[in-house]
């Protein structure tokens, strides 16, 4: 994970909290948070080689599908859940979001914005977008529920979720005048801190 990105997430994570990272990959974010914020981190990862990398880093990990895993996590108690770049891979993102906020008080979601101008351009020329943060072609991608910034914020509203903070980032993980002005066109990535209303 890019270090700029890690720093953004880090800011929203309080010290000494119990953190669940859904789709934690090789555990580098949790390792970073363990070092910088002394969090008690726990990851979920479906890919065995990535899960094994978590074990090497001594990051506790449960190797399972998020869609499946979340159902069994009902009575667990985390302070904060991170879902970095994985909500679009879930079978039921809406149900998952609600479940997550049963497990933890707050949730950080990051997602690629499918309405970014580069995606719009690809579609204008009749092609499925292949961009910097959506680099995999349509037939191989794990992204089955891509959405736009507008879509996601609408969903939060419909589910009665409150967006405490949000950031619109360009391809270099920076906020710019353009991403602030017209996020759904210029932001490549949306980053949200959410809780129940």
């Amino acid at each position: 994970m890019k270090s700029d990105f890690k720093r953004i997430i880090e800011k929203w994570i309080p010290q000494n909290t119990k953190v669940l990272d859904l789709g934690c990959g090789d555990g580098d974010l949790l390792e970073h948070l363990k070092d910088s914020k002394n969090v008690n981190g726990f990851g979920i990862e479906i890919d065995i080689s990535k899960a094994n990398e978590c074990l090497r880093r001594n990051i506790p990990v449960m190797q399972c599908d998020i869609d499946e895993g979340i159902k069994e996590f009902n009575d667990l108690d985390f302070d904060i859940t991170i879902m970095a770049n994985s909500i679009q891979c879930l079978k039921n993102p809406n149900l998952a979001l609600q479940n997550i906020l049963n497990i933890s008080n707050k949730c950080i979601v990051t997602l690629p914005n499918f309405a970014h101008w580069s995606c719009r351009l690809d579609l204008f020329f009749g092609k499925m977008p292949v961009t910097k943060n959506l680099p995999v072609p349509w037939y191989e991608t794990k992204n089955i529920h891509l959405c736009t910034i507008k879509d996601f914020e609408e969903l939060c509203n419909n589910l009665d979720l409150y967006v405490i903070e949000k950031l619109y980032l360009n391809n270099n993980f920076k906020e710019s005048t353009l991403t602030k002005l017209l996020p759904n066109l210029f932001a490549a990535e949306g980053v949200y801190l959410i809780e129940r209303k």
Binding site: F42, P60, M62, Q63
Partner: peptide, 20 residues
């Protein structure tokens, strides 16, 4: 196996679960 891991997490233990 999952049952052991989930119960461990609940009581704040450092537990990992691998399914092959």
């Amino acid at each position: 196996g999952k049952e052991i891991c989930l119960a461990s997490i609940k009581v704040n233990k450092k537990c990992s679960y691998i399914e092959l």
